[in-house]
Structure formats: structure tokens, C-alpha cells
Amino acid sequence: MSTPIPLPALRTIAALSPRDADVLLTLAERFYRLPTSQNARQGLRRVAAYRRFLKLPPTRNEPGSMAADSNAMVEQRRAPRQDLFRLGELHPAGGSSPIDCLVREASADGALIEVGQTSALPDAFTLKIQSTGLNKPCQVVRRTERCLGVAFTTA
């Protein structure tokens, strides 16, 4: 029996065929489902992010998963979010150094942002995505341990 591939090794997953990527991610998901630790939940979130990035269908939609939480929130939004999966920067007021982030989804009204730790972040900042030219002030409306739901503000 082979040892499981650590998730950081999946950086080159885009080079695989869609079928091979799906098989590999399914195996990784099975591995991370065994324990119920915080690391396992983070691993499952990472697998889900890779699936979205590769445009593969999700294999999980259990209550409490990122997919289930995201689907439940869509019903409350004025403008539906689209998958974006772009690197961005959060610029807090006062000239503090920018904080790298991953913008998972975005709409005309807001975005879902993933960062390393949300507890130290302010409730208002500017979101910049260089690849799309986005530069908008934001207000945090939802906060979990690693994700922020933000609404774009006018100033």
C-alpha cells in the first residue's frame, strides 16, 4: 500500500489529466476524512479549492462543508458570486503592510476571501487584485477562522 501524497505536493496538479486529477483528489479527500482534527478540515478545504480551480465536480456537499455554507449564503445575496480563485492583497488603513489572500469568489457587491488567520484583521480594508484590476474598499460581514465574507463599500 502506498503512502498518501501530502497536499502541498499537489502544486503541479494542473499538469495531470482531469481524470487523474479527480482520482488523486478523491484519494486525498478520503485520507483527510478519517480524522476530525482542524488539520483534516483544512485539508478538505484545500482539496475543494483544487477541485474548483480545475473545474472538477465537488465530491462533498455535507452540512458544515465550505460548499454547503457557500450554497446556503447564495440565496441571501443580491448579486450571485462567481468563482474567481485569484491572488489578492488586503490593505488595512493607516499604511500597514499588505496581507496576501486568496479571493475565492466575487460579485458586484462583495467577495469571499481566504487568509491564514482572520482574527487579527480589521473590519475594514481595501481589496486589491492585480490580475483583474480590482481595487475596492471592503467591510467584513462574515468571519470564520480562515475566511472573510466582505461587502464592497463606496468609501
Rank of each mutant, 00 (worst) to 15 (best):
M73F: 15
R104N: 05
L84A: 04
G88D: 08
A79C: 10
P98S: 00
V47T: 09
Q76F: 15
A72M: 13
R78H: 14
L84G: 04
L54N: 05
S70C: 07
S96N: 07
D69A: 14
L84K: 04
P80M: 03
R81G: 03
R81W: 04
G95T: 02
R60L: 14
R78N: 12
V103T: 03
A72Y: 11
V103M: 03
S96A: 12
S65C: 12
R86P: 01
Q82N: 08
P63I: 04
E89H: 09
F85W: 07
A68R: 11
P58G: 05
N61L: 13
G95F: 02
E105R: 09
A79N: 10
M66H: 11
R51E: 07
V74E: 15
R52W: 10
P63Q: 08
L56C: 10
M66E: 15
S107R: 06
G88S: 08
D100I: 04
L87M: 10
A93V: 04
Q82I: 09
A68M: 11
N71L: 15
R81M: 09
M73A: 15
C101K: 02
R81F: 03
G64T: 12
P57K: 09
R51C: 04
D83E: 06
A48E: 14
N71Q: 14
R52S: 12
Q82A: 10
D83M: 04
M73R: 15
A106K: 04
G94L: 03
Q82C: 01
K55F: 05
M66N: 08
H91N: 00
G95I: 00
A72I: 09
L87R: 13
L90W: 03
V74L: 14
M66D: 15
R46T: 13
G88V: 00
E75Y: 13
M73S: 12
R81T: 07
R77I: 04
G94T: 00
N71C: 12
H91L: 14
E62H: 10
R51T: 05
E89D: 02
L54Y: 09
D69L: 15
G95Q: 00
A93L: 09
A67M: 11
L56R: 12
S65V: 08
R51A: 06
M73C: 10
R77H: 07
G88R: 05
S70T: 14
A48I: 01
A106G: 05
R52F: 08
L54F: 08
P98Y: 06
P80E: 01
R46Y: 10
L90V: 00
P58Y: 02
P92W: 01
A72S: 12
A68P: 06
A48R: 10
D69E: 15
R86C: 11
P92N: 02
L56H: 06
C101N: 02
L84F: 04
G64Y: 12
R104Y: 06
A67V: 15
M73V: 08
P80G: 08
L56K: 13
M73Y: 09
R77W: 11
L87V: 07
H91R: 07
G88Y: 06
E105T: 11
S97C: 01
P63N: 05
P98R: 00
R46P: 00
G64P: 11
P58S: 13
L90Y: 03
N61Y: 09
S96E: 09
N61Q: 13
P80V: 05
A49C: 05
N71R: 15
G95P: 02
A93K: 08
L56Y: 09
A49W: 08
F85Q: 05
R81L: 05
A68I: 03
